[in-house]
Write a protein that binds this DNA or RNA. Sequence first.
DNA 1: TCCTTACGTATTGTGTACAATTTAATTTAC
DNA 2: GTAAATTAAATTGTACACAATACGTAAGGA
Lengths: 148, 148
Amino acid sequence: MKKQEEKCDMLRLDKQLCFPLYACAKEVVRRYKPFLDELDLTYTQYITMMVMWEKKEINVKCLGKILYLDSGTLTPVLKKLEWKGYLTRERSKEDERNLRVMITDKGIKLKGLAEEVPMKVGKCVKLEAEEAEQLYELLYKVLGCMDA
Amino acid sequence: MKKQEEKCDMLRLDKQLCFPLYACAKEVVRRYKPFLDELDLTYTQYITMMVMWEKKEINVKCLGKILYLDSGTLTPVLKKLEWKGYLTRERSKEDERNLRVMITDKGIKLKGLAEEVPMKVGKCVKLEAEEAEQLYELLYKVLGCMDA
DNA sequence: TCCTTACGTATTGTGTACAATTTAATTTAC
DNA sequence: GTAAATTAAATTGTACACAATACGTAAGGA
């Protein structure tokens, strides 16, 4: 019965990596809400804009690969951001299957308003710089070492 | 303009902890799906049952504190698990505001079918035991050091 | 060319998440 | 002892997240 008991113990929240990962991600994202509310952005819209600020133009497939999101999630988010005037969407002339997502001037201006967000959230999470760096490395390691 | 540029750089996915955390959590949870499908459980139902296997009985408030979920999320999940026969829900006699959630025999039996899940998922995530331990510690540290 | 296959996006359906509000029960204040 | 405040769940509304499917376009092969 020893082996049985060991297996049982595995089925506890505090024995599995998945749970602190899941809980921690939700709690950290929640810390963004008050600051993103000021910009009238959701977290998903925010990370989408972060990619747009860097890339200026991209298609949905590419964006999804960067954000780990599929078109089912991105399509409504992109339509909303287009409606808000931060980006435009149009089919590529060369290949009509591709949707070109392009940032607008208003979208570029939004970046100025968002600049303080990372710092503000950082203050809510009291982690030493070294620990943050360690965590960062480990998370990217996990992202890289999972089966496809 | 140096300062301006430094601020700009912060607004990149690869400069912020939040994004790998968010992406990693989603990807790890996704790894559970094929194994949980065999049990006809969603991830949220699974972690709820993990608490129930340990506690046998609990109220919604308490469960929510453990899982970092509120009644708006838990109520439908608990109703579904009750419908599946894994637990029962009834108001407490001492304080009618409290809902007593109790595991059933069928719920207890389900644990036997779930025992292999953590090990199966563990094989998909190729992380050294030491690194997993480090990550675990850091995540709980973050959970503990955030402003309420 | 026509047919098949692959590809990129959109749509649909289910299940979370969570803020805000509501409802009912209990506690506290006076 | 009752009104006011507090509490626990449930409900409502918005926004993901993602599998599965549908749809249109493009590419490759006979």
